[in-house]
Design a protein around this nucleic acid. Structure first.
Lengths: 399, 399
DNA sequence: GATTTAATTCAATTGAGTTGAGTATTCAAG
DNA sequence: CTTGAATACTCAACTCAATTGAATTAAATC
């Protein structure tokens, strides 16, 4: 993740062109659902003959399925192709200080399997074999003749590298400082591995299977231990120079405000996060450590929780305004390890700033929507990342 | 600019591969200065034979120049190739409500010509012919056998489209609402045209010729009429869904703070911007409408200006913290239509937040640096955009 | 039923990169 | 000073994945 090495800009050749075009086709099939060869050719700017060849190859690998011919006006009806859900699978793993969450998804990003495993230590020597075993179990759960495994996405708590922002503390893992997790996991799992932070993974999940399916640009506000942000801008993941972009929790919303564990004052996280909620409720003598606790309080319309929501909404609304002005997204999505109903209430309570570039006359989407939530969000997102990679070429986009 | 149409993801073929590879080669030559064929082949992952062909083509078009053979240990010394400064030129135009600024740069982005033209009206009917005439004059200024014109970059005040944020008011142009400037300018100028906002253009200029030459990710804070932000992340321009990303001026830094023309309270722009400075000084009975005025006050160490700088530094520092946490850039650059010395003083005065992901043990660059400044910044940046486009493929990057 | 429209395939061609052999030039070792 | 290793580069043949143009199939329209 630490991108010390300047990114390599490489040339293309026939082989890379072929891989690129495969991804382009899969990407279009994903976003359109079903398409015929001729239409795909038009969309991609390739010849129908080239498309025929690409389709034939993808079909022979069972990544896509031929459907019915579909009549659309005159001419020979086009054979409709769709992605084959069972064409491939991807693993997703979230590594936390005290648990490993493992997920398996199909080629569409749909969940096939999930599991939570408690760990006593978060050192590599413990984590790596545990993850390996979990992945093996996940794969064996879908039977003998399993489809190809595209890879494994790993979510680890950021920020990556030694930065001034280690106060967040709790979430840190021990013994990973000088290691490159990508290499370690690839070694153990023997499949391509990608490491990302939780918020980014969740954002990708949202784009693959959630409410951002047809969004090219959005911000995903992720409620984890702290508060993260995943940004997709014009289809590209925003990572920053060192993979630490999106540290929304420590954006200052109130100068000289509440003291944060990072040493600073007024961080958004101290107002709007799971931690903030449980601290608030603790002062009222209520425990809200787990997501379940929050759900329960919510179910009984707990007045203290309601009060917290009201208090948390304002700083969040301000931060959302900042996101809108800085990223100009199509929408801001709220999700993560929070009960969905709580997110809904929080959204309902938002008093959004009406002077941002996102206040447009031609808006169709709401400015803030609720996304996927729950404990597995990040792990499923990690798997979605792998799926995403097979759809999204690192390529030529044109207006 | 308004990207209503979902971006098209297209396939590749031999022709596009060739164009891509040309750009890749030019890009490497730009960032390394001089390189031999073999080394270029290694950098790009192409065969030396392919590289020879590409180099031959670029040389025949006079975009690159063969230099001396350079000895590096054993073996045949490699012929070193460099970009030919005189190989091509690009136009840059900034359209303001009352003036048009026109610039011409060479293939390296160096300034060849600049001119400021006053206009009475900012309607298309006035602007377009004026721009055309200005460009013609710029081109004729460099003599008869001019190198090929790569295109024209146009900077127009944002935000684009009808958004809630029109309070900024002043800077708006009239009569452009329902028009597509890109098409209009292309029609008149008969060269490829790109339209961007001032901050983004300035950021690109910084990367092409300024202090960000070897940065892949940075934020450029642009002092224009208001306060803009250009973001380059891993070599890509961040535009947002509708081309309005980077509206830094209206990020709220103080809840319930000063009333802004946008109707909101506490916008950064009301504290830290040219407008804010001149309002502050006006209250002290001093005029600081122009950049010259500010320079003069600065020269005499005006205590009121110093006071403003102190007052402006805090909100800016907070905003920079936000940028660091959200974008994780290698550095934040301050530039634009402000006297360079004033920017220096402002930077010196910054009390940066020390809990952001940008506080790294291994930092080499300062967190905030001064970039290009002056009135022509945006126009030169617009031209740099065109140069940039010939170097940066919309392509395959790999770690 | 004849004609137009559109999807698709077949066969030949093309464009750009790759491969492998061979040449030139420099450094280093004997 | 000769010889051999290392490196840059070229030549010629080849390969891959695209394009082009003609032919085929099936539906909609006249």
């Amino acid at each position: 993740m630490h991108r010390k090495t300047p990114l390599k800009i490489i040339g293309s050749n026939a082989e890379r062109t072929r891989l690129h075009n495969r991804k382009v086709v899969l990407g279009h099939l994903r976003s359109h659902g079903k398409l015929g060869r001729a239409e795909l050719a038009r969309l991609t700017g390739l010849s129908t003959q080239a498309m025929s060849n690409i389709i034939a190859e993808l079909e022979s690998e069972a990544l896509i399925l031929a459907g019915e011919r579909q009549t659309k006006g005159r001419g020979l009806p086009a054979v409709q192709y769709t992605l084959n859900p069972a064409g491939a699978v991807a693993l997703g793993v979230e590594v936390r200080p005290n648990a490993i969450l493992c997920a398996l998804v199909n080629f569409l990003g749909d969940t096939l399997y999930t599991k939570r495993i408690h760990i006593e230590s978060s050192e590599p020597a413990v984590v790596l074999p545990t993850v390996k075993a979990a992945c093996d179990e996940a794969l064996s759960s879908i039977g003998k003749n399993a489809p190809p495994v595209l890879g494994a996405g790993i979510v680890m708590p950021g920020p990556f590298g030694r930065v001034g922002l280690t106060g967040a503390g709790k979430a840190e893992l021990v013994g990973w400082d000088d290691k490159d997790p990508q290499v370690l996991f690839e070694d153990v799992l023997q499949v391509p591995v990608r490491v990302e932070n939780d918020a980014t993974a969740a954002a990708i999940a949202e784009q693959t299977t959630g409410s951002a399916t047809d969004l090219q640009s959005f911000c995903f506000v992720y409620f984890g231990t702290g508060l993260g942000l995943g940004v997709i801008s014009n289809g590209e993941i925003l990572r920053g120079a060192f993979g630490n972009a999106g540290e929304l929790g420590h954006v200052v919303v109130e100068r000289g405000g509440r003291l944060c564990s990072c040493g600073n004052r007024g961080c958004l996280e101290t107002y709007t996060s799971r931690m903030a909620a449980s601290e608030f409720l603790q002062k009222r003598g209520k425990s809200a450590e787990s997501q379940k606790d929050l759900s329960d309080l919510l179910a009984v319309n707990d007045p203290d929780l309601d009060e917290w929501i009201c208090e948390a909404a304002d700083p969040l609304a301000q931060a959302i305004g900042t996101l809108e002005n800085l990223f100009d997204p199509e929408a801001v999505i709220l999700g993560g390890a929070m009960p969905p109903e709580l997110l809904e209430r929080l959204i309902a309570q938002l008093n959004l700033i009406d002077a941002t570039v996102s206040v447009r006359a031609d808006r169709t989407l709401p400015r803030v929507v609720r996304g996927a939530s729950g404990w597995m969000t990040a792990a499923l997102g990690a798997a979605a990342l792998i799926i995403h990679d097979t759809y999204i070429p690192s390529i030529s986009k044109v207006a």
